[in-house]
Computed example of a mutant assay.
Amino acid sequence: MNQRSLTQPALADLADIPARSRWAHHGGLRLHALDYGGDGVPVLILPGITSPAVTMDFVARALTGPVRPVVLDVRGRGLSDDGDSYALDDYAADAEAVVEQLGLDHPLLLGHSMGARIATVVAVRARVPLRGTVIVDPPMSGPGRGPYPTPLTAFANQLQEARRGTDADEVARSWPSWPRREQELRARWLSSCGDVAITATHEGFESEDFFDWWPRIGANTPTTLMYGADSPVVTAEGAAEAASALPAARLIRVPDAGHMVFWDNPDTSLTLLRDALAAPHPAEERASVGKLAYD
C-alpha cells in the first residue's frame, strides 16, 4: 500500500510561501519544485527522507537574495509523482532533469540527509555543471557499517500519525526544540510522503554506501560537509573518515544540533550555511577548517 494525501490546510500553506511552483519531467514522472526567484546564483535544495519541499521554506527564505533557492519535492513526496525505483541513481537523474529543465546555470547543490546523498551522487556523475556542493549530515550507514540510527518502524509510526491527523503538539513531543511553524508544517505535510518511497530509501541507507561516492567528488567541485555536533548519523568517527577520504572538502561542525541540523539550531546553522554558500573555500583554508571541525 502506498497512501499519500494532502489536506486543504496543507495546500493553503503554499499561499504563504514567496515561491512559485515549477515543474520538470523525468522518466514519465512529474517533479515539483518551489522556485524563490531572484538574480542570485541558483541553489538546488534537496531535502531529506520525510521532508517535502515546503518544510525547507525557512531555509530557502534565509538564503534568498544572494542566491536563488529552488527546493525540490523529491519523487514520492510533496507534489511530485511516485517512482518505480528509489535508488540513488534515480534520485540523481531527477535532480539533473530539474537543473536542465528549469535552466539552473551552474547551480550550487544543497542536500540534507537523503538529499545530501543525492547531491553527492550528482556531483560524482558530473552530467550537469555545478559550482559546488554543500552536503549536510548525510547518512553514512551502508553495507558492513551498521544500521541507520532511526529504524524504519519509527518512520512508519510517524506516517500513521500523519494520516490519521496529527498536529503540531504531537510533533513537538518528538521534536520539542523545533520552531512552532516547522512543527506545524511537518504535521500537515508528512502525509504527502509515500510508504514505498520511505521504505525503499531507508533500505538504500543500508545497501548503498555513501563512501562509494564521496571520495569521487572531483577537485573542480568545491565541497563542504556540514554536520550536527550531536548527530547520531554523522558521528565524530564518520566525520573523520569523510575528511580522510576527501581531503579537499571543508568540514563544518554545527554546535547544539543533531541530525536535523537546520531545525535543531536554526540561527547558527543558517549563518554557517550562508557563509559556506557565499565563499567557495580556497585550497589553503581547507586543512585548517577541517582540523577545527573536530575541536
Rank of each mutant, 00 (worst) to 15 (best):
M1F: 14
E184L: 10
G204I: 03
E182Q: 11
V134P: 14
V233M: 09
S269Y: 03
E161R: 11
R180N: 11
I45L: 05
G83N: 06
A197N: 04
G115A: 02
T221K: 07
V128I: 05
R173S: 15
E96N: 03
R173W: 03
L277Y: 06
P282D: 07
A293I: 14
R77V: 00
V124E: 06
D89I: 05
D90M: 07
I217A: 05
G65H: 03
Q8H: 14
G218P: 12
A229Q: 15
A62D: 15
A197V: 00
Y227G: 05
R180Y: 09
H259N: 09
P139Y: 03
L292C: 13
Q101M: 01
A119L: 04
Y86K: 01
R180C: 10
Y148I: 00
A248Q: 15
A12K: 09
L152K: 02
D267C: 08
D73T: 00
H32M: 08
I198T: 11
P47M: 01
P52L: 04
S192V: 00
R61T: 14
T235P: 10
L246N: 09
P18R: 06
V261A: 04
T50D: 10
F205H: 09
Y294P: 12
E170N: 01
V234W: 04
V171A: 00
E208F: 13
A239K: 10
I198G: 07
G78C: 00
L102N: 07
L102G: 02
T133L: 12
D13R: 01
D13H: 05
A240V: 03
P282K: 04
R131Q: 12
